[in-house]
Design a protein around this nucleic acid. Structure first.
Lengths: 344, 344
DNA sequence: ATTAGCACTCGTCGGTCATGAGTGCTAACA
DNA sequence: TGTTAGCACTCATGACCGACGAGTGCTAAT
């Protein structure tokens, strides 16, 4: 059996209706609302075909139809028309992104806020991958006879600040020298290269040196670790409650639970390809807790290099075209804002 | 009418039973489970009295009784016996709090994690009040020709780091001088005093100086503002789902919504008195979204000075004695750990 | 190929009823 | 005077039933 023009129109109508009502849609409804010029009976036949093709499903005998995951997939691949954001929305987005934003951290928070605000879905955003930024310098600031604050600065701004224990005998000048040594050897390297250096030359040449050095190296190492690398920013998690498919408390709990585990979110977002908007529908998702969810994700760039990922999570019954529009516009704005902040 | 020994026992039994079952408790149940040596009928009479005293309530005619807010209040004030934590639990707590904790920030996260883990309620923790810590120094670190990172260090560790725009003409030495000027005038003052200085002398004497100075002052000011002052740490918010009284989606949503607004949480926690454990029950709470909730809070100290607040939120039907035990033990541990970190 | 007609399915909603937990009241008892 | 047994009464809960309506699949007519 082949898809034809009318089948496509029927599928389109089913998805369009179901997305807004969250109720199974029947043949009569389609005939009434979307004038395809045919009777409900004809539509029923088409629906029967569509079901056989696996594009739609019946939740129970003789109920209306709802789109299957595969149906949504067909929709986003072939049927969906691109929908631009309203001028007003674009304006708000641009303004929010350029609003006196100096901190990458804050920028990311804003990004996730915008996503959830414009789509009513839950935003998930990965911060820039620390590994791909370049090391600028480490600064050791004495604060007490036996303590100092170490601050690592990368091309994406401050990434880690931490208090170190230091031997009392160390003078501020000594600290200066220590940081000078580290800065000398690492400046300009990407953090990934830094990681490599840590294991080899540097650690090698410096392992007879002071305790401070090794502590400093440790925090650099820490700055490179999973929990810091690509901070996860969530926005509008409570939007879940707005979806009727999540009126069940258990589902909400598992979903919120997953979102709380940042490493899971990170994993999920990593399936995003380098270019363009990615859509993952229902069971296409690795994580079983996301069976009822779809994700729309995209990477953002700086000078052609992937920095991180933004995305949103909603029910499979999602307004895909709008979501894509939001994510797409936002990646642009984000890349632009990052360029400005990082001043390259 | 007066409370007497038997009435107290009945009230105690009602609360004890209701806390574990979340079901209205009837006279027969009490007679069976708690042998008071009297028949259900007698207990019914007592319950009738207790109801007249406003200590218990009937959700509907001829159902069992549940404690009223006032009943819980009477319970925690007069009836509740102190319950120590299990040795094992204390051990875990102490270990977690002393585990290589250098960062105040991280310490607070741990504290909220412990609360929610031990009680199954939602933890709320206020970080140390920035205003009461003392200013140590500001450090301006050049990172590009036109940018510098400013780091403020207080006696509680790093509180703010921010990227500044600087005029290209400014040399690193200039920056050094600028920070020296600021440090000179502010070191050793409490941040509250710093705030005062900002408005008066300093701003006065320095207002003809460079742009960097005013930006530096701005970030100091920012470090003092509500959003940074007393960071709110939440733990185990999903524990809400474990309580049968919150099986209703709407209630969960409003509650999570409130918790997400950190300023509201901050407000709620500020009713905690300087000493001892505070218990706020149901409608005693200012916020109407907390009608069904009780809070157990306490302040933690450093050298006799209030630093912040920890607490937990649960249903009015709460195991008060256990909650008090957890909060009490934790404040001790916390104060101890802070002393170690801040090294006074 | 399309459509009208019709029997059939099944979820939803309102109503009824039995059940059981729990009460208040009264009268008997110590 | 305090305590208890007995009994009628209340009310939430859950099972069950039937009407209703949305929707389907099939068949025969167009």
């Amino acid at each position: 059996m082949q898809m034809n023009d009318r089948k496509q129109k029927v599928l389109w109508a089913i998805i369009h209706d179901y997305v807004s009502t969250a109720e199974p849609v029947g043949s009569r409804t389609i005939a009434r609302k979307y004038n395809l010029g045919v009777s409900p009976a004809t539509i029923r036949n088409e629906m029967s075909d569509l079901e056989e093709l696996g594009l739609i499903e019946q939740p129970y005998t003789s109920s209306g139809r709802i789109p299957s995951d595969y149906g949504y997939r067909y929709f986003v691949d072939c049927l969906m028309e691109r929908k631009a954001l309203a001028a007003e929305e674009l304006r708000i987005m641009q303004q929010t992104m350029s609003d006196r934003l100096q901190e990458v951290d804050y920028l990311m928070q804003q990004a996730s806020a915008i996503i959830s605000q414009l789509t009513n879905y839950t935003a998930v955003v990965l911060g820039p991958q620390v590994g791909k930024t370049t090391f600028q310098q480490i600064q050791l600031i004495p604060i007490m006879p036996t303590k100092a604050v170490a601050v690592i600065i990368t091309s994406a701004g401050v990434v880690e600040s931490k208090i170190l224990d230091i031997p009392e005998s160390l003078t501020p000048e000594d600290l200066q020298q220590v940081s000078a040594v580290i800065n000398e050897s690492l400046r300009g390297l990407t953090m990934n290269q830094v990681r490599a250096s840590l294991c080899h030359e540097l650690a090698e040449t410096l392992k007879k040196q002071t305790q401070v050095l090794s502590q400093s190296l440790e925090i650099i190492d820490e700055a490179l670790h999973a929990d810091n690398d690509e901070r996860v920013y969530l926005g509008g998690t409570l939007n879940i409650f707005k979806q009727p498919e999540f009126k069940d408390v258990d589902k909400i709990q598992t979903l919120l639970g997953i979102l709380e585990q940042h490493h899971t979110v990170r994993e999920l977002l990593h399936h995003t390809p380098e270019r363009g908007v990615n859509i993952t529908i229902g069971t296409e998702n690795k994580h079983e807790g996301f069976r009822n969810c779809s994700m729309v994700t995209a990477t953002y760039h700086l000078d052609g290099e992937v920095l991180g990922v933004i995305g949103l999570v909603g029910p499979t019954r999602m307004e895909y075209s709008r979501s894509v529009a939001v994510i797409e516009s936002l990646t642009e704005n984000l890349s632009f804002a990052l360029k400005r902040i990082l001043n390259r």
